[in-house]
Design a protein around this nucleic acid. Structure first.
Length: 584
RNA sequence: CGCGGGGUGGAGCAGUGGCAGCUCGUCAGGCUCAUAACCUGAAGGUCGUUGGUUCGAAUCCAACCCCCGCAACCA
């Protein structure tokens, strides 16, 4: 019986290009996880989209002389294109600017407001009397009180690195107009986490031992410190507006004195995307199984899938998994669950929150501004998507920081992927092609019992590990089977046996081919393009993934025929040439 | 100051009480079906430091040193 699995992938912020760090942090592991579950016959809904609102977008817009929605329109299609290139198999990849997202955001807001988890409170904020407007911190600059550096932002001094709190900055002015700003008290809506504390405690305790240890402890640390009220509105044009008409129907104490300029703050709204995207997916209909519509939304719904979002969100047997980088840990382990709990609608809570640390680039942080980054599209184009997927998947920062190095890339690809897995497949198929003309059939064939044990163990091990989010170890258990395969090849010396004992050679050939088709399945979550190629060579069209059909298990054929000429799946990299990348 | 993570043979990592393991690299041998790929064997570690608990510690406790992330208006 299949499960409803929601694979929730963090929403990339669309103020720049996606680099290899993003891929390793959450995008690739989420795709591997989703692909695995589809092979198991689970009904997987994988959703995400572009996170479009907030100050960084407007900052980027100002810098480029564009409007915020032009910035979104510039980067969103790039991201979509990149995801297609990498084979990331979203059911819906949307944006936070859709009507559905706004509607659902309003629903969640009103639920929380009615349930008294959203309250009105006051805070001090920078205000420009001349412009009659409150300004976000990013738009206020002045003199750092610690080192006297000029033109520093009001939240952190870039010169001395110190964090500043409100009011510390000397002679604060608006970055836009140069007008003087002052701190002024203003009303905002706050999410009252103090009221959610005990429910969140229960939620965390239930997951102790299930989540990655460091993730749980980090969340636990935050919760033990005690969560405070957190503002969920701000003075900001580029944001989702409040549902003011609905709010005005509520009692006076649930209303702000002045709604002018107050919009929903991006952190509150972006995570709601997991819920709104599921609904948008449900509502969408398409004649094609997979398409990108005019607004650049990727949509995919297969015949065998349920199309009702409620089966994922309101059925307690559904399982929700989240993928993100460590900067998002608190939002997904505590804040978002808090929002769901406070809604009191019975929404499914996260079953596991897979948080990754960051991947560095040659020992230093990826940085767009310092031009220390790898173009995700280019590297895949140059060296092959699966080759890049392999290296990243083998080096995910699951428990500690990882490091992308060109030397590691070459060594890993050449000495592991190509030499071990690629070579096993190639030597088997080449032998089959030259000595058997690509045809074999053995009616009462049974696979070598030791090999069978190893194959079954690989399926079992990889399944166990991937389900726990140990994507790196899952890959290792597949590579282990390939190593065992090479050993089997050597020990059985088929190239000798075939000269003296055809019958015995046939048996070995069958064993090897059956090993290969099982490897083709095992590698599918990680190396989807190569797996498809391989499948085409020895089986024909790839078996369709179907809800309720579990193909994550060993299978053995009694005959094989090559469908095409044997091709090399992974090309060996030119070490010298790749290492030249370091110079750039 | 606070909340977390990490420190294990040349590199990357696993290992939370019982003779220190894996992948890669290195060295030696073998094989020749294969993308100079594959197989076998060997060398290589006082498990960050110091002290403690224990019959026994990489693993538990204490103190300390080094590296990294987060710190709530950069999601």
């Amino acid at each position: 019986m299949h499960k409803k699995v929601l694979v929730s992938v963090a929403w990339p912020y669309v103020n720049g290009d996606i680099h290899v760090g993003h891929l390793s942090g959450y995008l690739l592991p989420a795709d591997i996880f989703a692909r695995y579950h589809r092979l198991r016959g689970d009904d997987v809904l994988m959703v995400s989209g572009s996170d479009c609102h907030g100050t960084p977008i407007t900052v980027e817009a100002d810098k480029q002389g564009l409007t915020p929605d032009q910035v979104v329109d510039k980067y969103h299609p790039n991201d979509v294109k990149l995801f297609k290139q990498y084979g990331f198999d979203y059911n819906l990849y949307t944006k936070t600017t859709t009507a559905t997202h706004k509607r659902v955001t309003h629903e969640v807001f009103l639920d929380l407001l009615k349930n008294d988890f959203i309250v009105v409170d006051k805070m001090e904020q920078y205000y420009s009397p001349d412009d009659d407007a409150f300004l976000p911190d990013r738009y206020v600059e002045g003199v750092c009180p610690h080192c006297n550096a000029k033109d520093q932002r009001s939240d952190q001094c870039e010169n001395c690195g110190r964090w500043l709190s409100d009011g510390e900055l000397i002679d604060p002015v608006s970055k836009l107009t140069g007008n003087k700003v002052v701190l002024k008290e203003t009303e905002h809506y706050f999410l009252d986490f103090e009221k959610l504390q005990s429910e969140l405690r229960k939620f965390l305790d239930k997951n102790e031992g299930e989540w990655r240890n460091w993730v749980w402890k980090e969340a636990d640390g935050w919760l033990r410190e005690g969560l405070r009220k957190r503002a969920i509105t701000r003075d900001m044009d580029w944001a989702i507006e409040l549902p003011i008409d609905e709010i005005k129907k509520l009692p006076k104490e649930k209303q702000l004195n002045d709604f002018a300029g107050k919009k929903i703050y991006v952190w509150f709204e972006a995570v709601i995307g997991y819920l709104s995207a599921a609904q948008e997916w449900s509502e969408s209909t398409g004649s094609e199984e997979k398409y990108t519509n005019d607004s650049g939304i990727v949509y995919r719904k297969t015949e065998d899938q349920s199309s009702d979002w409620k089966e994922w969100w309101l059925d307690s047997s559904s399982e929700h998994y989240y993928f993100m980088g460590q900067d998002n840990l608190v939002f997904h382990t505590l804040m978002w669950p808090g929002q769901l709990i406070g809604s009191q609608k019975g929404y499914t809570l996260p079953k596991n929150v897979f948080v990754n640390k960051f991947m560095n680039y040659e020992g230093k942080k990826f940085s767009k501004s310092r031009n220390w980054t790898i173009d995700s599209a280019k590297i895949a184009e140059k060296y092959g998507v699966d080759v890049v997927r392999y290296y990243i998947a083998a080096n995910l920062p699951e428990n500690k920081e990882a490091n992308f190095t060109w030397e590691g890339f070459v060594d890993s690809v050449n000495n592991e992927l190509v030499a071990n897995l690629g070579n096993l497949i190639n030597r088997t198929l080449k032998f089959f092609e030259s000595k058997y003309n690509g045809e074999i059939s053995l009616s009462d064939y049974e696979i070598d019992s030791n090999l069978q044990k190893e194959i079954d163990a690989a399926y079992r091990q990889a399944a166990l590990l991937i389900e726990k989010g140990e994507i790196v170890n899952g890959l290792e258990s597949i590579m282990k089977l390939a190593r065992q395969g090479n050993k089997f090849f050597d020990e059985n010396e088929i190239w000798q046996v075939i000269k003296t004992d055809k019958e015995k050679a046939d048996q070995i050939m069958m064993d090897l081919l059956n090993l290969i088709i099982n490897l083709a399945t095992l590698m599918r979550p990680y190396l989807p393009f190569a797996a498809t190629e391989l499948h085409k060579m020895i089986v024909g069209d790839e078996t369709d993934v179907q809800v309720d059909t579990d193909i994550w298990q060993s299978r053995y054929a009694q005959e094989f025929s090559l469908k095409s000429e044997v091709k090399i799946l992974f090309q060996k990299l030119d070490r010298e040439k790749v290492l030249e990348e370091r110079e750039n």
